[in-house]
Design a protein around this nucleic acid. Structure first.
Lengths: 337, 337
DNA sequence: CTGAAAGCGCTAACAG
DNA sequence: CTGTTAGCGCTTTCAG
């Protein structure tokens, strides 16, 4: 492998000068710089970031920690993160915590302490107390996206607000029989968000003097495949059927729509459906939803990380990302009783 | 930061012994090893992978290169890769090539040469000749998943076979008016796969003595949002309508199904739809498709990478991943003319 | 079984 | 403007 010494030799200067010349530092004559550059190009020299990282203490890498891989929200946030990290010259390490039976904390710990990354962006999930302690006393700055993590800088929508928007919309249309398809994710890595949405759904209804039937909450596991059968069950009995469903995510809302069709129910004439997210598919489905912008959340988190890396202080507070109701074609007044 | 010296001092041995003890090497007395371990634990010592990487030349990181972030196929392969990399102690660097205007080759080059990664897994996309040269003369082993890259080790389904399965199925049901929703991806990073599917669609029809109308190929951009309007256009004219659609991906197939419904067409009575992938949503949609298993493809690629890293030779050949027709509820004989 | 010494490739003072 | 001298934190001979 061609090292800085090879370039130094080839251009007749010292390694230190090569280093300065190539990094564009001042105090290098134009002539020398040009000579070094062409020598480096010729030899195909690229500095080893490992070696420079050892001395500077920087890895030019930030870790994105996710509870799952392949879920819409997470991959979308990651896109935003990547959008800003890449032009800034940072690499992105993806640390998946899912399925790591018991090794969660260790993985965490290692990535941070082994100095592999300069910062971490932690996507919505419940930290164990141990992890939280690690994060906050971390040798590298960490910021959370999505969930509200106590004592940590975080960024995300207000789940109570989003839920309020969705449920009130249904209430305003005249619905009273409003069910909720929500539920835990399979790994239990992100229980907080689903819980907020569920409890707020109940609250908003109660505030309106409505109390949902006991079996009008069903667990859709935050994926279409599980929301579909859950909705089938929920909607089966014509005598005991909600007129509207608030789904905890758009993906689950798609499952509800598909289930309704399976049962011959028309959406929105017989059943209204509202979700949260504004998934890529939602406009095509005509889904009424509460829009959030995960790409933007990712971008903003990465931008902040970059700031902190430049020396700005990290304030441990929460910033609320905006969300808004987008009314499309899956909600309408309830059918006449 | 606590270094190996601190542990050495605390346990009264030399740094070299600490290194040996902690890595479980032979020639360390049990007593010493125990002492070192407890000292390390107490101090919360974790070796710096940067420092050890500098001397061993290993980064314990493999890069996954993708043309997009957030597309089903890619994120699903990534899950498979992660499945095997993580337990093996490797970190995963995700290198997104999308939207990097012009900087593609450089990013590539740098990641490899800067010795940030020990190997690369390149997900289906067209390499430029320059990139290909880089990959093949790379200082680190690289293997491709999905696309068939000339002169490179690769792994993926045979797109011609997959297409044959899908189109023959329609032909066998009696269809003759078979359209194709396929097309380029927006960034043009992966033109090969769509092209194969499109040209093979035409071929299979011709082999059966059928020639599709000129406007029975439409560009669905490989995403639902674009397939939907394209399908709307395709299916609009009742007098000139295909009885079946072969979609180049399941996601586009969903768009076709939604478009058919929009037009009041019943699937499969009025229109049959078949896709390729077996997306997570496909079973719920009842979509007939040609199944491939991206998780498995990712796993196998990662397993191979690990082998090569252990010293096994890298054979530059292609292995075909299997695919199979899964008949569900979106295909049926054509309506009586 | 353990320690001392010599780097891995680079950057950061400090001299010139 | 440029070279020299020290390391960054670890692993690896090579001696004990």
């Amino acid at each position: 492998m061609v090292s800085i010494h090879d370039v130094a030799r080839a251009s007749g200067v010292s390694p230190a000068t090569v280093s300065r010349a190539l990094r564009g530092l001042a105090y290098v004559s134009d002539a020398t710089r040009a000579r070094v550059r062409s020598a480096a190009d010729e030899l195909g020299y690229v500095p080893s970031s490992v070696a420079s990282g050892l001395v500077t203490g920087l890895s030019m890498t930030v870790a994105v920690v996710v509870p799952f891989l392949g879920r819409w929200y997470y991959t979308t946030v990651i896109q935003g993160v990547d959008d800003v990290l890449r032009p800034a010259g940072y690499d992105m390490l993806v640390l998946n915590l899912g399925d790591s039976n018991g090794t969660r904390e260790r993985d965490f710990h290692h990535a941070m302490l082994r100095r592999r990354v300069d910062a971490m962006i932690v996507l919505a999930f419940n930290c164990t107390p141990g992890e939280l302690a690690q994060l906050n006393s971390a040798p590298v700055p960490a910021i959370a996206v999505g969930g509200d993590v106590d004592g940590m800088r975080s960024l995300g929508v207000d789940d109570r607000e989003a839920t309020t928007l969705a449920v009130r919309h249904l209430l305003d249309l005249g619905h009273r029989r409003i069910a909720h398809v929500g539920g835990d994710d399979p790994v239990g890595l992100n229980a907080h968000v689903p819980q907020e949405r569920q409890s707020r759904w109940r609250e908003v209804l109660q505030e309106a003097g409505v109390s949902p039937a006991a079996d009008w909450f069903v667990n859709g596991g935050f994926v279409l495949e599980r929301a579909f059968p859950a909705a089938l069950e929920l909607l089966r009995d014509p005598g005991h059927r909600p007129t509207a469903v608030f789904a905890g995510s758009d993906e689950m809302a798609f499952g509800v729509i598909l289930a309704a069709r399976e049962l011959g129910l028309r959406v929105p004439e017989d059943l209204s459906v509202v979700g949260i997210d504004d998934h890529d598919f939602s406009a095509t489905f005509g889904l009424t939803t509460v829009r959030q912008d995960p790409v933007d959340q990712g971008r903003r988190a990465a931008l902040e990380v970059l700031d902190v890396l430049r020396g700005l202080p990290l304030v441990r507070s929460r910033t609320t990302a905006s969300c808004e109701l987008v009314v499309r074609r899956t909600t309408a007044p309830p059918p006449p009783a």
